[in-house]
């Protein structure tokens, strides 16, 4: 078989040609840009009253929140400590200020009447306030502030309670 007689369109040539074209196509095909999964939507800052904060105790798939001196921290990532069954579980969904200041995890450290006024921390001494400040600094470093805590009959709470009273962070 000489060169001049060689047929071009033999099956093997067609196979090789299509392979070639396919490789060129692969090369020129624009690569799909890499994408990351969507970031979780940011938590909306809320104003809580003690009864509203109460369900955020880690039970029933809820996140764990606790309040220190009016600021509500999302401590879900520290669930082992603050969640159900943890050593600090009493604080979940509650105002933990007095308990943290006194270094006590007992029930009687918590404000009993959720509908009553907030605990203004009367009767705490210097050392206890220092301890509380230490905790607060630690929380601010580690956890997000997702809201503020106000007493129940507050104008601001009533104004806000309509729209975003539903948990936005769930």
């Amino acid at each position: 078989m000489t060169v001049t007689e060689a047929p071009v369109a033999t099956p093997i040539n067609i196979v090789l040609l299509s392979l070639f074209v396919f490789l060129v196509y692969l090369r020129l095909k624009p690569a799909k840009p890499q994408t990351l999964p969507r970031a979780p939507p940011p938590t909306v800052f809320r104003t809580f009253t003690p009864p509203e904060l109460f369900p955020y105790n880690g039970l029933n798939g809820m996140p764990v929140y606790l309040a220190v001196r009016g600021r509500v921290f999302d401590v879900t990532s520290g669930k082992n400590f603050y969640g159900p069954g943890g050593p600090y579980a009493n604080f979940a969904g509650r105002d933990a200020s007095r308990g943290l200041a006194c270094g006590s995890f007992d029930e009687d450290m918590l404000t009993k009447d959720l509908d009553g006024p907030l605990d203004h921390l009367e009767g705490l001494v210097g050392e206890q306030l220092d301890a509380l400040q230490g905790w607060e600094d630690r929380f601010s470093e580690k956890y997000l502030v997702v809201g503020k805590l106000v007493a129940v009959p507050s104008d601001e709470t009533e104004a806000d309670a309509g729209g975003d009273a539903k948990p936005a962070a769930a």
């Binding site: 078989m1 060169v3 060689a6 047929p7 071009v8 033999t10 099956p11 093997i12 040539n13 196979v15 090789l16 040609l17 392979l19 070639f20 490789l23």
Partner: peptide, 16 residues
């Protein structure tokens, strides 16, 4: 398939 191999096939292979 291979029986049809000729000079063009070689050129294509070299090209690939």
């Amino acid at each position: 398939l291979l029986a049809g191999w000729n000079i063009y096939s070689t050129v294509l292979l070299v090209g690939i």
